[in-house]
Every structure is written in C-alpha cells, then in structure tokens.
Design a binder for these strands. Structure first.
Lengths: 206, 206
DNA sequence: TTTCTTAAGGTACTCGAAGTACCCTAATAG
DNA sequence: CTATTAGGGTACTTCGAGTACCTTAAGAAA
C-alpha cells in the first residue's frame, strides 16, 4: 500500500539513469491507462515509481511531455499488412486490428493529450505521428497487391485514397464515440465506401 | 483596463437574469477565442463580464459546461446547400465554406473542449453535435440533386457516403494541423476521392 | 410606500496540482 | 579515497476550480 516496488531489504539501493527512467515511464503508462491524462499527476507518477518529482522534471520538462512520452510507449503497435488474397479480406482485417487498438480507451487518452499539449509544436507533431498509425504505407501495400491482381484501378494507389477507410473509422471515434463502432460499421465502411471507391472505373469525365 | 463595461455613472445598477447571462456568455466567448479553452478561467470570465464567479456557477455547474455553452454560441453557423448546377461545384463550395469555418482557430478550441469535458456524457454529446456541422442533411440534399441530374449513382445517397468529403477534411485538421489545409487539398479530396466514389458504376462483384 | 424574496456583489476560503529550490546522501568515475 | 553526479526528501510558490457566507440591490406583492 505504501511501498510500490522498492528493493525491500537491500538497504538503501538507489536506482539511476536508464533504470529509473524506465520505472518512471512505466509508472506514467500505468497512471495514464488507469486515470487518463486528466488524472496523470506528477506526484502520483513519482510515488508510483518510488521516486519524486525532481527525477521526473530532470528528464521531461512538463506534464504534457511526460504524457506524450508515456503515450508513445503505450501505443507502440506494429501494423503488419495482412494478405488474405482478396482486398476485402485485407481491408477488413486491417480495420479490425486498428479498431481493436482504438477501442481500448486509448482514444480518450489521446483526446486528453491533444488538448493538454496545447501549443507546443514539438509535442503536437509527435502525437500526430502516433495518430497516423504508420501512415499510408500499410494501405498502399495492401492496395498495391490488389492492383496487381486487377481488383483495383491503378489510380487508386494514392495516399489519400488508400487511407480513406481508416480515416472514416477514426472519424467514428471523434463524432460518435466508442460505443457505436461495431463490426457492422467496419463492414459498411468497406462495402459502401472503400471498395466502390478503389474499384470505380470509367466516368472520369468532368 | 480595470472597468470592462459596467454602467459608469448610473450608480449601483445591477444586471440580473437573462441580461447578466448574456454578458457572461459573451465574455466567455471572447476569452475562448482569445485564449482557447486552456485559458478560460472562471475568474477572468467573471471579471470580463463585470461580475463574479458566483453568478457563473449559479448558471453553469462547471468550467467545462460554460466552455461548451460558449463554444456553441461561437460555432453557430448555418450551412446552406449551394446549387451551382453541377456536383463538383456544389461540393467544393461546401468544403470551402466549412474549411473557412474550421480554420479560425476554432479547431484548437474544440480540441481543448473535447478533452476538458472529460467523461461528462451530456457535454460530450453536445460537442459531438457541433462537430457534425448539421449532419448529413446538407450533403444528401446536394447529392440528391446530382442523382436527379444523372451525375451520381442512386446508391450513393447514403449518409456515410455522402459525408465522406467533409470527413476527410476534418481528418486533415486532426492529423496535419491547420497549416496544410490549402484549397489544393480540398480539390484533391473532391477529384481523387469524392467524385470517383459517388460516380462509381458497376463492379459490385465480390 | 413598505416589505419580502430573490439574486447579484464581494471576499475569503479550501483543495489539488504544476513547477521550483535546496539540502542531504548514495552511486559511480577517476 | 575522493570528487562529481544524480536521486531522495521536503517544503515552498503559484494558480485556478469550486464553495461558503454575508451584504446589498432589484423587483414583486401587499
């Protein structure tokens, strides 16, 4: 209750450098997942890490900076492009993977951070990178294979087109909240928007 | 500097009810536009309105509630569907209108609010309504006319399809920030995504 | 006009959290 | 073995949200 995880009977062993940094970051990640960014207090993180605020401020200049660092650690997810042999399967697989990822209350944390970061351009950039989830790369890969199979028109191999599906999914979280993003929504995004878009042939007339 | 706008020499005239409420809300809107949600302090709003915190708390239960109320006042924009006789013109006109609206630092305020609202479902709902900008209605109107002209396949008359353009625009603000949303981006959204999507014919094959 | 009720003004408070200062002490480099 | 570095402890300042309480004006009713 009072003793998070210090060395119990080793006397006054004192962590330094990378070890302590790790402990702080882990504590911050835990606080972030439990209480969100609003509940991320420097004192609590310090206590949880078995240290004090000084050690934190020696590494991160502000609460926002610590928050972003912790979030990046928290959101480290590798997005491997699936290969089901068919575009629809690939896209759905990717969307489900990302949706799973977004549902875990991480979107709340992200919302909090986006605001808390305020006008710090450095932190804002770091966060935007996280939001992009690996960028267009994965989508272009999947789409490229579909083009090779003749499933998709070649002009669809364009970052803005390729990422439309995940963009719509992200939008659901912003405008509707977590509750409404069921698997049915994913299917709808794929069947009503994404597939018609990338398959669209002809009618380039203005 | 010290005297926002009280009656100067009318003696102790004291505003009440709706008049005072208006004054507070106006002050809050001003603070919000000048300093964003982060800088919206109850004391400052009170001073600016020429009153004190009590009068505010008697009307709104929290800073977040006041912030949302002020934002709603700030974001009251009527979105009339244009009618240029051609879908591309209509869509671009709408996007430009909305973009104009979003650029004005309102997106920063909104970011702040979305976080500040925290877990209050009531306030969150109010904000989401604002984000939706009149919902799919305007888009369905514009698209409906295009369907009537034979420009667009009838199945595109679907909320999720109809609003794709504004969704992508919104996404730009989240992932890239204000700087990158030039008119070229709007054109790209329309020509690379929206028009191909709503025109797409055939290829409903699985 | 007088009185009563309601709501505004003024002020001072508590509480929590960010960020800072300072001194003491353990770890490690030389 | 000593000097330097960095962590530990703690107390502090500052700021803002939200609350309490009393005084006083506005407006309605008698």
């Amino acid at each position: 209750m009072d003793d998070p995880t210090p060395e119990p009977s080793s006397g006054p062993s004192r962590r330094r450098g990378a070890v302590l940094e790790e402990a702080i970051l882990r504590a911050a990640v835990e606080e972030l997942t439990e209480s969100g960014y609003a509940g991320l207090s420097m004192d609590r993180v310090a206590r949880r890490a078995g240290t004090n605020k000084n050690a934190i401020y020696r590494r991160w200049p502000s609460r926002a900076a610590l928050g972003v660092a912790a979030y990046r650690r928290l959101a480290e997810v590798e997005l491997r492009p699936p290969d089901t042999g068919e575009l629809r399967g690939d896209v759905l697989a990717l969307l489900r993977q990302i949706n799973c990822d977004l549902s875990s209350s991480r979107s709340d944390i992200l919302r909090g951070l986006l605001a808390g970061v305020g006008d710090d351009p450095e932190l804002l950039t770091q966060l935007r990178e996280q939001i992009n989830q690996g960028g267009a790369g994965v989508w272009l890969t999947v789409l490229g294979r579909a083009v090779a199979r003749g499933e998709v028109r070649p002009e669809a191999l364009h970052p803005r087109v390729a990422t439309v599906a995940v963009t719509l999914l992200r939008n659901e979280y912003v405008t509707q909240g977590i509750t409404s993003v069921t698997d049915g929504v994913l299917v709808e995004i794929v069947d009503e928007v994404y597939l018609p878009l990338v398959r669209a042939r002809g009618s380039t007339a203005g």
